[in-house]
Amino acid sequence: MQSVVKPVLGPRKEVSDLTGRVAVVIGGALGIGYEISRAFVLNGARVIMVNRKEEQGDEAVKKIKKEAGDDANIQWIPCDMGDLKQTKERFTKIRSEENRLDLLVLSAGINANQYGETNDGIDRHFQVNWLGQFYVCNLLYPLLRKTSKFPDTPAPRIVFLSSEQHRSSQKAVHFASLDEINNPKMGPVELYGRSKLAIILGVKYGLVERVIKPNKDNIYALSVHPGAVNTAMQQQWKEAYPGITGKLITSAMLAMGRDVEQGSFSALYAASSPDIEERGWNGYYLTDPGEKGKESAQASNANLGAALWNLSQQIIKEKVGDDAITNWSAAIV
Rank of each mutant, 00 (worst) to 15 (best):
E59M: 12
E59I: 04
A60H: 02
V61C: 15
K66C: 11
K66G: 15
K66W: 00
A68K: 10
D71L: 09
N73L: 13
N73F: 00
I74N: 02
Q75A: 08
P78F: 01
C79V: 08
D80F: 00
D80N: 14
G82R: 01
G82W: 00
D83L: 02
L84N: 12
Q86Y: 00
T87M: 07
E89G: 03
E89A: 14
E89L: 11
R90M: 14
F91T: 07
T92D: 15
I94S: 06
S96G: 13
S96N: 15
R100T: 10
R100F: 02
L101Y: 01
D102L: 05
L103Q: 04
L103P: 05
L103K: 06
L104D: 06
V105L: 14
A108S: 14
N111D: 10
N113Q: 09
Q114A: 07
Y115H: 03
E117C: 03
E117V: 09
E117N: 03
E117I: 07
D120H: 00
D120M: 01
G121F: 08
D123T: 04
D123E: 15
R124Y: 10
F126I: 05
F126Y: 15
Q127R: 06
Q127L: 05
V128C: 03
V128H: 01
L131D: 08
Y135C: 01
V136W: 05
N138D: 13
N138T: 13
L139E: 10
L139I: 10
L140Q: 06
Y141Q: 06
Y141I: 08
Y141P: 13
P142G: 07
P142S: 08
P142V: 05
L143F: 04
L143T: 08
L143I: 11
L144V: 10
L144T: 06
L144I: 11
K146D: 00
K146L: 03
T147Y: 03
K149C: 03
P151W: 14
D152R: 11
T153P: 01
T153E: 12
P154F: 04
P154V: 05
P156W: 00
R157H: 14
R157Y: 12
I158W: 03
S162D: 10
H166A: 11
H166N: 09
R167E: 13
Q170M: 12
A172Q: 15
A172W: 02
V173H: 02
V173M: 09
V173S: 09
H174N: 15
H174I: 05
H174F: 12
S177L: 09
D179T: 13
D179C: 02
E180M: 08
E180S: 11
E180I: 07
N182G: 06
P184H: 06
P184A: 06
K185M: 07
K185L: 09
K185Y: 12
K185N: 14
M186R: 12
M186W: 07
G187Q: 11
P188E: 00
